[in-house]
Simulated assay, not measured.
Amino acid sequence: MPHPLGIELLTVLGMGPVDHVTLAADLGCTAVSMGLTQLPMNPHDYPAWSLREDAGLRAELKAVLRDRGVAISIGEGMGVSPEFDASERAADMDIFAEVGAIRINSVDMGVERERALDQLGKLAEMAHARDMEFTIEFCPAFTIRTLGEALEAVRHIGEDKASVLIDSMHFFRSGGTVRQIAELDPALIGHVQLCDAQRKGIGNYLQEAMTGRLIPGEGDLPLREFVDALPRGKTLGLEVPLMAQAQSGQPAAEYVAEIALKTRELLA
């Protein structure tokens, strides 16, 4: 398969960073997305963890990334908010740089457009100063809703400092087409997250995005064509939080392995 796979933070539902990397490597995946603290969703009751507060955990994470040949494709949890300024993220940026994150990803969280662009620009500059890339994720429920709007934000910030994160659910639900991907400058695609979904959602969009995504091949999205249109070799971060399986007591290693297997079968 021309696209390596990664396991996104949301997929492992609260698992600690070292175990997350180990599981990804055991499944033949080469990347993970990573936050600095445990997600609120923790159906497996994993022990609480924080890369901010635990220098020993940061050292363990760096060691397992090196030993297992896994990269942190994106640092997560850096969304733009009306409550604080991007400058307050400096310490978090330093930690992501310390553990070797390739890029920082941000979303606008529904912030007013002018402030969103200003704050995203500041985050991009901070990432650039630390030799990390920066991606902007669009979502139909936020201010930057579509690929076109995300590209406008990238141009505003500067294509040398930012690119887009394309999440397959957000992309198709916001009206995106495979042709758009095929015609897009590959340099503008910083990261890709892959899941399946129904073409039209029912109910709360963000709730579905957090808990109702489907394994690739089990929904209506044209994922094979989508992936074929991507630049060859682009890592596909699997973002499929199977909450029902987790709440039923099925071990994460089992359902995450199923996600990776079925994705490989779809794309073979």
Rank of each mutant, 00 (worst) to 15 (best):
243 M>D: 02
27 L>H: 09
39 L>W: 02
176 G>E: 10
234 K>G: 01
255 Y>I: 11
172 F>K: 04
174 S>L: 08
267 L>C: 12
158 G>K: 11
90 A>S: 15
213 R>I: 13
163 S>H: 05
60 E>H: 07
118 D>G: 02
95 I>M: 01
179 R>E: 15
160 D>G: 12
145 R>F: 11
75 G>F: 04
161 K>Q: 13
193 Q>T: 11
2 P>G: 10
58 R>Y: 00
116 A>Y: 00
20 H>A: 08
23 L>G: 04
77 G>P: 03
252 A>V: 15
67 D>P: 00
56 G>V: 09
163 S>I: 02
29 C>G: 11
155 R>Y: 12
245 Q>V: 05
9 L>C: 09
188 L>E: 07
199 R>F: 04
114 E>W: 00
60 E>M: 04
133 E>C: 04
189 I>V: 15
124 A>S: 14
56 G>T: 11
131 D>N: 15
141 A>W: 11
158 G>H: 12
16 G>N: 03
198 Q>S: 11
101 A>W: 03
156 H>A: 12
238 L>N: 09
41 M>I: 12
151 L>Q: 01
158 G>D: 07
48 A>K: 14
256 V>P: 04
13 L>T: 02
39 L>I: 02
223 L>V: 12
98 E>I: 01
20 H>R: 05
147 L>I: 06
176 G>C: 09
40 P>A: 11
166 I>V: 15
142 F>G: 00
156 H>K: 06
249 G>E: 05
219 G>L: 07
155 R>S: 07
38 Q>T: 05
236 L>H: 08
216 P>I: 05
129 A>I: 10
260 A>R: 10
138 F>D: 00
69 G>S: 07
31 A>Q: 13
26 D>M: 06
164 V>Y: 01
253 A>V: 10
87 S>Y: 14
191 H>T: 14
36 L>Y: 04
146 T>M: 07
174 S>T: 08
55 A>G: 03
241 P>L: 08
232 R>W: 01
85 D>Q: 13
134 F>E: 03
61 L>I: 03
87 S>D: 15
85 D>F: 09
177 T>V: 08
114 E>H: 02
123 L>D: 00
3 H>F: 15
193 Q>C: 12
240 V>N: 12
4 P>G: 06
78 M>N: 14
248 S>D: 10
192 V>W: 03
81 S>P: 00
115 R>M: 04
213 R>L: 11
257 A>T: 08
37 T>V: 14
250 Q>H: 11
116 A>I: 06
215 I>T: 15
207 Q>M: 05
111 V>F: 03
246 A>V: 14
254 E>V: 15
44 H>P: 01
244 A>Y: 00
123 L>T: 02
223 L>S: 04
216 P>V: 07
233 G>H: 03
225 E>K: 15
53 E>L: 10
122 K>E: 09
107 V>I: 13
241 P>S: 14
168 S>Y: 04
230 L>W: 04
17 P>E: 02
68 R>N: 02
211 T>E: 13
50 S>Q: 02
21 V>Y: 00
35 G>L: 06
143 T>I: 10
231 P>Q: 06
75 G>D: 01
136 I>T: 05
60 E>D: 14
204 N>F: 08
156 H>F: 12
135 T>I: 12
239 E>M: 08
65 L>W: 04
216 P>Y: 10
93 M>L: 14
236 L>Q: 02
126 M>R: 06
